[in-house]
């Protein structure tokens, strides 16, 4: 089992690069067992996050297991999660579009050092999923597949939280799992990653 993140080995400086003399410490302290060498000093900041009007519409949809994107009024691109405007033409998005909970793996990386309270056991696959009908991909975790079989273009399906645990949170999509459909050619994902 690999060492826990907090206890990983520290590489020493090369000899002569940097040295600090050992202090002379009064015996009453110098002779105690297990002198302090490391300390945990977590720092945290508490924010009150207001997602805004369009993301609020999106998050309320998630409570009902609906993925609601919003459409660019000029070129028809659907943005999800919606931010209330099209970043391409700079106009407000006004039309909501319901999207399926399926998509295509647009990009991924294999995470070996996990952090955060909800991180799956490492190694796991962090994924960008291009939901069918959307112009941009969403972030998620891809599970239920050996990591060596993960590839760009594979089809994936959302796995939702149990109904009684649904909230106005993107974490309602617990993770994505493989969908038994033919892969999408990676060229078709160009411009959507």
């Amino acid at each position: 089992m690999p060492p826990a993140d907090n206890d990983r080995q520290v590489t020493p400086f090369p000899a002569g690069l940097w040295e600090q003399p050992q202090p002379v410490v009064p015996a009453a302290v110098a002779e105690v067992a297990e002198p302090v060498q490391r300390i945990r000093v977590p720092a945290s900041m508490l924010y009150r996050y207001t997602p805004g009007a369009a993301p609020s519409r999106f998050l309320r949809g998630l409570r009902d297991k609906r993925i609601l994107g919003e459409k660019d009024p000029v070129n028809g691109d659907v943005y999800v999660p919606p931010r209330g405007m099209s970043p391409v033409v700079g106009l407000p998005t006004t039309e909501q579009v319901e999207l399926p909970d399926r998509g295509t793996l647009a990009a991924f990386c294999i995470v070996h050092i996990g952090f955060g309270v909800n991180a799956p056991p490492t190694p796991f696959v962090s994924a960008l999923v291009l939901i069918d009908g959307a112009a941009v991909s969403v972030y998620g975790t891809l599970l239920d597949i050996p990591i060596e079989e993960v590839r760009i273009g594979m089809r994936v399906q959302a796995v939702w939280a149990p109904d009684e645990e649904l909230t106005t949170s993107f974490e309602n999509i617990r993770y994505w799992k493989p969908l038994d459909e033919p892969d999408v050619a990676p060229e078709l994902l160009k411009g959507h990653m």
Binding site: R40, S44, M45, Y47, R48, P51, S56, F115, S169
Partner: peptide, 15 residues
């Protein structure tokens, strides 16, 4: 409009 607490935390471990 929705609102939620958001905690940014760094688990520093120092020598």
């Amino acid at each position: 409009m929705l609102e939620a607490p958001l905690v940014i935390e760094y688990p520093f471990n120092r020598t």
